[in-house]
Write a protein that binds this DNA or RNA. Structure first.
Lengths: 328, 328
DNA sequence: TTGTACGCGTTATCAG
DNA sequence: CTGATAACGCGTACAA
């Protein structure tokens, strides 16, 4: 590694002068400045950020964002918004993606991060990993799912969303309902499932639940639709799963909503597309929980005291679209 | 900031012992270990990563990925795949998103990065910024667009894709064709546009081109479809733009492909969804240019010599789907 | 097993 | 305007 000392040697000046050229070019003789810059170019010198932040005791300017695979448009949107917002605040984000096969691994790399704070998106996290995170002392914020501990989180009320979905579907006279649950490793989905089952049971509806990884998706759908008492409506735990359900159903010759109704949860951008028109339970597009979460994290980072910042739990609403027979 | 010295003081040991507790707990007396750990907890101590990397002169284990907004599913997919793959190789990725309003800003933060290498996805980069990047000495790889300089890149042949799109559409007897170009700040799109125009002209077709930011999308589409000689087919520079075009057309009462044909470029996952069925020119889903690009970057990082690694330019193929009247 | 002492690359404070 | 020199927080020989 080429250091400022090397540059200084080549330029025939002291290391301090090199430092000045970098930080206070105005306070340096034009002639020496040129000499030093030439040496910098010649050696391909890059100041070492680690050393810089060490002496300056300045912040690393880095934040970590943890989430699931970006193939889910909702997740991608979450990551994109958060990172872009943090960038505008001068922070660089590192993205940690949880792999369905080794969900815990993401926290290993995370523990080695020099990020000043962590935004936890929709990921699966065990109590134990929470403990580790908590004890690490790094400020963190949950976004999209409730905080298991009593930290701070900004999220839609996932249980309520599940309940609302069941309530709506039952009000449409469906008695046999399919639930497409997605990965069991996602706390959001479990919450939604819980709310959904509660309300469905209260309404006397029968639910056929299918949980599973996205990779088995076709098998899950086939198994559900092959039954004699096939459901008249499908509720998916996310819009992406709902979209995939529609994709599957179309491939198998079903018409929607003619043959079967489909609804999702999340009210993502794609759900409102005219070619999809997926009824969904979620938050308004105006609500930016990611910006909110990022702001909270920045407050935590800045705060000398580890203040308790309460959680925000937003109530979801119903967005009726064509996939459940409603004309918008 | 609480340092290992503070911990040492509180625990009544030397700083070196604290360091050992952290890195070699086995080589420390169980009793002292407990004492030190208690102090660590009490003070909420976190080792300073900057200092750590400074002394160890160890690699940062970080790679930067630069791309456009993740709202484009293709981009999100690119980022997700790359990051996940790099994670499996033990690297942490920082994600730099180019903002359409300040395209150059992303390189500012990038230049301060401690990353060992950079993957440049679909972004707009000026010659000047390329120079800066090149002279910084950080290994980099282009992915998804050709390298402006003669570095190394892994990409679909975007010009060929545009040409193929034009060739196909013209073969379907369309004479008035609309081109939805997206942002002018994306080199990929400009390449595709160039190829498209060449081939369209060669076939004697008339093209109405609409470039513009995604935010003006509705206006662009309205302007195009309001013309008396409205196009009978639309070709979009990306599948995402194609999907949006279809969304717009459906909202305005058009039927696809009945009233108008639509094609995209990229062959993204969403284009093959049954609810969208967007004809597209692109690479097979099997081809993982991101893994390939990441591998090349890792070779560059590892290599003592800055070897010249040639570029890969993959030839796109046509994927006919319902949006151009083809039954798959 | 533990402590001492040094150096990593940089910035900042002094003298000169 | 420039050059020594002292930190910054940590890992690690080496000595005890």
């Amino acid at each position: 590694m080429v250091s400022s000392v090397d540059v200084a040697k080549l330029a025939g000046v002291s290391q301090a002068t090199v430092s000045r050229v970098l930080n206070n070019p105005g306070k340096v003789n034009a002639e020496t400045l040129e000499k030093v810059n030439a040496a910098i170019r010649q050696l391909n010198y890059r100041p070492n950020a680690a050393a810089r932040s060490l002496v300056g005791n300045r912040s690393s300017g880095k934040v970590a964002f943890v989430c699931g695979p970006l193939t889910d448009p909702e997740t991608a949107d979450a990551a994109g918004r958060t990172i872009l917002y943090l960038q505008s605040k001068g922070y660089t984000s590192e993205l940690h993606i949880q792999d369905a096969e080794q969900p815990g691994k993401v926290f290993d790399l995370l523990s080695q991060t020099q990020a000043e704070g962590i935004v936890l998106g929709p990921v699966h996290i065990t109590r134990e990993e929470m403990q580790l995170l908590e004890s690490s002392g790094v400020p963190y914020v949950f976004c999209g799912q409730d905080d298991l501990a009593a930290g701070s989180s900004v999220s839609m009320d996932n249980v309520a969303a599940g309940r609302l979905a069941a309530e709506y579907i039952c009000s449409r006279e469906h008695r046999f309902i399919g639930w497409i649950g997605g990965s069991e490793a996602d706390q959001r989905l479990l919450d939604r499932y819980q709310g959904f089952m509660e309300e469905a049971k209260a309404n006397g509806a029968e639910v056929i639940a299918a949980m599973g990884e996205i990779s088995d998706y076709d098998a899950v759908m086939s198994a559900m639709m092959a039954r004699k008492d096939r459901p008249s409506a499908l509720v998916a735990a996310t819009d992406e799963l709902g979209a995939r359900a529609i994709d599957f159903l179309l491939a198998y010759g079903y018409s929607i909503p003619g043959d079967i109704h489909v609804a999702g949860i999340g009210n993502s951008r794609q759900s409102s597309m005219n070619y999809l028109q997926l009824t969904s339970i979620g938050l308004s597009e105006d609500v930016d929980i990611y910006k909110e979460a990022a702001d909270r994290l920045l407050v935590k980072i800045a705060g000398e005291f580890r203040e308790k910042i309460g959680s925000i739990l937003l109530q979801p609403e119903l967005y009726q679209r064509k996939s459940t027979g409603s004309i918008e």
